[in-house]
Amino acid sequence: MTYARDVVALARKDLLLELRARETLPAMVLFVLATLVAFRFALPAGGSERASIGLLWVAILFTALLGLTRAFVPEREQRVLDGLVLSPVDRSAIWVGKVTATLAFLVAAELVALPAYALFFERLSWETVAAVALADVGICTVGALLAAMAAAGRARELLFPLLFLPLALPILVGGVGAAVTDTPARYLGFLGLYDAVFAILAWASFEYVVTE
């Protein structure tokens, strides 16, 4: 119970920071819209209609990348992370709080992106919406941990995408597969498996990333 309240306090703090600075979310929304428009021109007429769903997934992944890169910047700058690590809070709660906050930003950006996709390209199937929801969890669980790693080093903005993309490829497979194949349940199940496996791993290992 205290664990949940710690998580809420930490996530609320991130939302408050975003409300103050208004940096991340507007950037994510504008980016995903600009990307979708760019894809409209990148897709020649007569090409496969199925290709556009792949572009949607690439757009989601890159938008998440944009938000996650900065996820731990407030903590790593001026070492505020030390303050959180010193407090009697379970270290994994810091990670869960960050996952919650980044998830909120990503979902907010998608609330704009998905209708825009439906408007610009084609109607969304319920499978895609379900896949996006499942993928968001995986993206943020893995992304928050990798962001904490990348933020510890130099050149985090360059490093984070390199760490993130190879790990995110399975998400792409699950998402696209759920939309274009006859057996979406298999792909949704795979996304669920991905979420579970990496959530457990990240939950267990986060402490080691933020302590020395």
């Binding site: 941990l145 790693m149 510890a152 760490l163 190879p166 790990l167 490829l169 399975p170 497979v173 699950g174 696209v176 597969g177 274009v180 194949t181 057996t183 298999r186 792909y187 795979f190 498996l193 991905y194 496996v197 990496f198 791993l201 290992s205 080691y208 990333v209 302590t211 020395e212």
Partner: peptide, 28 residues
């Protein structure tokens, strides 16, 4: 050392997950 170690652990988990993903991707 610690951060590298956590990343290396992610690697061995990624191997079967990616393998599964690549098999699933065959279909499309």
């Amino acid at each position: 050392g610690r951060i590298s170690a956590v990343y290396a652990l992610f690697g061995v988990v990624l191997i079967p997950i990616s393998f599964l993903a690549i098999r699933l991707a065959e279909n499309f």
